[in-house]
Write a protein that binds this DNA or RNA. Structure first.
Lengths: 350, 350
DNA sequence: AAAGTAAATGCAACCGATTGTGTAAAGAAA
DNA sequence: TTTCTTTACACAATCGGTTGCATTTACTTT
């Protein structure tokens, strides 16, 4: 039953006959503490097994060393890699990571953003829920000067950090790739157009078609909200049933693209001869499925690392420059590279 | 610049001319506060937009409402589903989740367990690193009466909660399944035998063979530490090169099993006629790869939910019964069900 | 009406680190 | 030696709830 109490700075102060304030400052290399004292304090702290109480520090400073993360669903290849990157970078810099998932629900997103706020996170990284239209629930972070980073699924207008890929150019590249393989009628399976990721990819798709004087046929564009495997199958079957079916499909994620592949296979269509297919994300499945799925690769882990770095660097600059502020209308967009990964599902001529 | 201060219980106390202690108790429905006062306080709190400062409460009670999670790698299908389940359950019960990853390194695991401890997590859920042998770094949680749940990869002897599957019987079932399909020489690709998951599956594999009077050939067992795709390929190639190659492979995860499938395909071996293959986990790839990969399904999300529930219920019982204690040598093992998912990679006779 | 008991609320210490300001000690200049 | 600066450290308030104990108020009971 005898829970041995944790060592506090009081204990160190007593042992060294110093004030707690001196201990506190010495441990953070405060300039007004002599080197001799700093060494002495650190040695004692080490010997006594002192470990600072983050709660006490947090209470006083009204801020923790926790980065809040608000994503849609943790168990998605892209998201889990993103989180992995965030955790890795945060960890190295001495921050912890608190995870929440909105399940693509706007209400959950609002509540979780409040919960993270109440937890006094020192920064927040968010990828928007599919449902979200209004993003004013994030304003409080700006008001409190808490760095806010939107990643991948970002709002249209919100003056803050954004870490993302150039979805327009990626959509363009994917479509262009199919065109280069000889496709003349290219269909597109997209997610909610309220999300920048999908609307931009679609824009790129349209522009690539126009540039090559190909028809943009609304019948060839399916706004499948979920982009699930089934959505991919359903949409593809609808395409195949058209009087004038497409010879290429660009799906806005790999899951739907895999659905397209399975649908085509079931119909006995040859991939890529009859129908070329390209997805998006380069999920593990892409390289495993037969035929290999051409896709757009995403640096997911790096996006996580970059997002975490934005938060950490912003905090650093806040410390160094008391004038720095979120309110200076920071609008920094970081684009990470995407690449066409050409596999068998699209390569008409090898 | 005018950061409006948060509403505190002091503000409520002042407005209602009550003591802060009364506010504090009223908000938690303390029995010694009258219903009338409770209602009045809650109404005022609501109106004033009061949100409790979790740090202050945490400091006083020396404990947060944060559940620490220590896993090996976040971006693995099984792990990310596990975390998803934990987050979901924790969230509903009013807890937050702090995530860390050991990258299968023992040192990282030790440090992260300390970091979580320092964060005053109210509970911890851990899946051991591949490297870990000694688990004494978790003892401090027991000493402090902080519920500790090991999930999936659990230590041999540690009196605490365990949430897992019956790996022995799962290994047995997988092997038995291959035997039932007519396999006579079954190889096994396993992970580190220091982890219960792999050693138990192997034990089940061996017993299934013995039971059917099949040979247990050490040449057919590869202790591939990583269980990566490449490990699966390499191990399989080694098997195929044997004078007396196997007609079945049981890989201890799907990633390695997929490696086995690809290796077999490259050699022109027919699956399952020449070589039947079964994996473990039922990752998304399993149902997508061609041929469909037979495997053992794992209720990953449910394992997460169950683990979180163990933590939460333990905390509840601690509150209700001040005598309850970790030190009563709790050893509660919860087994979740596994199932053989038979797909084309193993079905010799349909 | 006095006394006794139960119910409701107030008081104040406490958790442990942080930080503005005050003061003592050490060194430099006169 | 005295005075003026630096340099180094101490004091004490503070962050916002929580909780043991004291106290007041409201009701019974005789």
């Amino acid at each position: 039953m005898e829970e041995k109490r944790d060592v506090t700075i009081y204990d160190i102060a007593e042992r060294l006959s110093l004030a707690t304030s001196t201990i506190s400052r010495a441990l953070k290399d405060h300039p007004s503490i002599s080197d001799r004292t700093i060494k002495k304090v650190k040695k004692a702290a080490e010997e006594m097994g002192f470990r600072p109480n983050t709660l006490a520090a947090g209470l006083r400073g009204n801020q923790t060393k926790i980065i809040g993360v608000l994503v849609t669903r943790i168990n998605r290849p892209f998201i889990s890699s993103l989180i992995s990157g965030i955790e890795e970078t945060a960890q190295k810099a001495g921050y912890s990571v608190m995870i929440t998932q909105s399940h693509d629900s706007y209400n959950d997103e609002v509540n979780l953003s409040k919960a993270l706020y109440d937890s006094r996170v020192c920064g927040i990284i968010c990828s928007l829920a599919m449902e979200t239209r209004d993003t004013s629930h994030f304003q409080k972070f700006i008001d409190k000067n808490i760095p806010l980073v939107f990643v991948d699924r970002v709002p249209k207008d919100f003056n803050t950090y954004r870490v993302m890929i150039d979805n327009y150019s990626a959509g363009y590249k994917a479509t262009k790739h199919l065109i280069e393989q000889g496709c003349k009628r290219i269909a597109h399976i997209t997610g909610s157009l309220h999300r920048n990721t999908y609307s931009e990819r679609r824009r790129g798709y349209v522009d690539a078609l126009l540039e090559s004087n190909l028809v943009v046929d609304e019948a060839l564009i399916v706004d499948s909200t979920g982009l699930t495997f089934e959505d991919g199958e359903t949409a593809s079957n609808a395409f195949f049933d058209l009087q004038n079916p497409p010879d290429g499909i660009f799906a806005s994620n790999d899951t739907a693209a895999v659905g397209a592949i399975q649908a085509a296979k079931k119909r006995g269509l040859k991939i890529p001869e009859d129908i070329a297919i390209i997805g998006f994300n380069d999920d593990p499945i892409a390289s495993i499925i037969d035929p290999g799925l051409s896709t757009i690769s995403h640096p997911a882990v790096k996006m996580g690392q970059t997002s975490a770095k934005k938060v950490i660097n912003h905090l650093k600059s806040l410390r160094n420059n008391a004038n720095a502020s979120n309110k200076d209308n920071i609008t920094e967009v970081t684009f990470l590279n995407t690449e066409v990964v050409a596999r068998e599902s699209s390569k008409k001529q090898s």
